[in-house]
Simulated assay, not measured.
Amino acid sequence: MQALDDVRVLDLTQVLAGPYCTMLLSDLGADVVKIERPGGDLIRPNPPFVGDDDAYGGYFQSVNRGKRSLEMDLTGEDREDFLALVEDADVVVENFRAGTMEKFGLEYETLRERNPELVYASIRGFGDPRTGETDRQGQPSFDLIAQALGGVMEITGQEDGPPTKVGPGIGDLFTATLNAVGILAALHHRDRTGEGQYVDTAMYDAMISMCERTVYQHSYTGDVPTRRGNAHPTLFPYNAFEAADGHVVIAAFGDNHWRALCEAMDRPDLAAEYPTTADRLEHREPLRSEIADWTATLTAAEIRDALEGSVPCAPVQDAADVFEDPHVHAREMLVDVEQPGADEDVTIAGSPIKLSETPPKPGERAPLLDEHREELLGDGASRAPRDERETADADD
């Protein structure tokens, strides 16, 4: 049994935000049916690949695992088949621009007539008019746009450098995660009342929520927060420092951590002269130089050994380091899946959601385009829990 194995999701999304949202639901056991436009999700052909005959690239594999695929033209003969699927669905998720589903004649109000208990969720750059109308709706948006508008880029990067986007696509991923939370809340409400509803998360909104610190700082002080590199505006030491063989981060802003750091540095004078948070913030630049001079003489491993257990610290790792970390494997955060068209498995990120009784299962590969048409639209289409579907698939 899995937590959502009685939930069917019709996933009309593509690229990243929507697929990541429905991937989270799939990992938790939901039957996610990926409804793909003619030709398939735009990111199917995106690299990287293992070989020349791969069915799809790593981008698609990573966020579409565990789903079933139907290729459908919602403007043509497949429209009625889609409406029939809606009648038996729990959730519909789409990430088109506002107004697109209305052009198909498949907007929330139409689908609700077919299934009053339906939870309909949208992910858009600027939200949907149903939840707050603005003149931005209908405009295209991508992660870069959301990070720029929401304030992320203004507070990211070095002080003397330009605004910088965060590496991962947080405009997509954080919005997708919030959308999944909204879907689960709406399903809980439906289970209590029998009433479906509309769930809407906007990328711009999500980035403002993620930048909550800048909101209260501006409100409280009138200042406009900007870039501080790896430093923190109200905590010190809380920064990255260069080691002899790389970089480490040290978070010693508590009085106890500060004293332990000074002891490891053999600098009890610093602990005595700057005993309070206010003292350290006032003299952060010369103190940062003192710490940097110490870390530069040691390897990252030596710094870790000197501080571990008394001061929060860690090396700055790259992807190869993550793959080698025993902690990551113990937490099942790297999952091997089949790569159709290749003679070897590939590795994708596991699920960070851990449940003791209904653990997620992120180990199924992404679907081939239209792979599940017969089982979904043919005679005897099953809505069995995932484990039963796996058994049936394995017997074929």
Rank of each mutant, 00 (worst) to 15 (best):
V316T: 08
D343S: 07
V328H: 09
G363D: 14
R365K: 05
A320I: 05
E308G: 09
A320G: 04
A319E: 03
Q339F: 03
T347M: 10
V346P: 14
D336P: 13
P326M: 04
A306V: 00
D343P: 02
V322N: 02
V311R: 05
D370P: 04
W294S: 00
E357Y: 11
V346A: 13
P312W: 12
D370G: 03
A300E: 04
R331Q: 14
P315V: 02
A349G: 11
G350P: 05
E324L: 00
E332N: 15
Q317R: 11
T358D: 13
L298W: 13
A320D: 06
A296P: 06
C313L: 10
E308F: 12
C313E: 14
A349S: 14
L355D: 04
L368D: 08
W294F: 01
V335Y: 07
D325H: 01
A320R: 05
Q317C: 07
E364V: 10
L369E: 10
E308A: 13
G309A: 07
A301R: 12
L368I: 08
G350Q: 06
E332C: 10
A301W: 05
V322A: 04
P360W: 05
T295A: 02
D321Y: 05
T358I: 10
A296M: 06
E332M: 08
E338S: 01
A319I: 02
D325T: 01
K354A: 10
C313K: 11
W294E: 02
M333D: 08
I303M: 03
P352Y: 10
A301T: 10
A300Y: 02
A296I: 09
E357R: 14
T347Q: 11
E344D: 02
A314Q: 15
L298A: 15
E344V: 00
M333L: 15
V328S: 12
W294R: 01
E324D: 04
D345A: 02
